[in-house]
């Protein structure tokens, strides 16, 4: 059963990921990205990270991909990219070789070091649900609000800065400062 879930989720992830990089239409790429993110969420559940799976679906597949689709449709760039022509001659074969080399190196390192994966943590067994069905979220909250509470608070500053910066970046220039847009048009 676990194997079946893993194989299905892995197929979803890989099909979606390849769809993102080979689909010429940006909207199709965004929808393929949703497939990949759902597959990752399924694997999170299979690894007993239930809270993160929920956050993955809500934040990634919900908010972030919808943001992508908004930008695609807002800007009207939803026309297919001409993927047939290769602007730089050997870029694609070279990129595939680099990708295969990256995967080969990392996979070789993983396979070689798989025997050195020994439990060094405090022995928190995420799998055992002795504290009830909400043990995962309870452990996560305990760790987050005890060991990482400063980082958690700093995160709020990061989000405020991101929101303010984005409003500043994406704001249309006021009609008073029209010289800015005319300079860009030239």
């Amino acid at each position: 059963m676990q194997l079946f879930v893993f194989v299905c989720a892995a197929a979803m992830i890989l099909v979606g990921a390849i769809g993102v990089i080979v689909r010429s239409h940006p909207v199709h790429a965004a929808l393929s990205l949703i497939l990949t993110l759902f597959g990752v969420a399924v694997l999170f559940v299979a690894q007993d990270a239930h809270f993160l799976a929920a956050v993955q679906v809500v934040v990634y597949a919900g908010a972030i991909v919808v943001l992508f689709l908004f930008v695609i449709m807002l800007l009207g760039v939803d026309k297919a990219e001409a993927l047939r022509i290769d602007p730089v001659k050997v870029q694609r074969p070279l990129a595939v070789i680099v990708g295969l080399g990256l995967f080969g190196l990392v996979a070789a390192a993983i396979v070689r070091s798989r025997d050195s994966l020994v439990v060094r943590g405090r022995g928190i067994d995420i799998a055992s649900g002795e504290a009830g069905h909400d043990s995962n979220i309870r452990q996560l909250a305990n760790d987050l609000f005890s060991n990482h509470v400063f980082a958690f608070e700093v995160t709020s500053v990061l989000l405020v800065i991101a929101v303010v910066g984005t409003v500043l970046l994406a704001r249309r220039p006021r009609s008073g400062s029209a010289s800015d847009t005319s300079a860009g048009g030239k």
Binding site: V119, G121, I124
Partner: peptide
Amino acid sequence: RKLGDIGGQT
């Protein structure tokens, strides 16, 4: 999951 450490999920 493997190392039994919740810090990864954090």
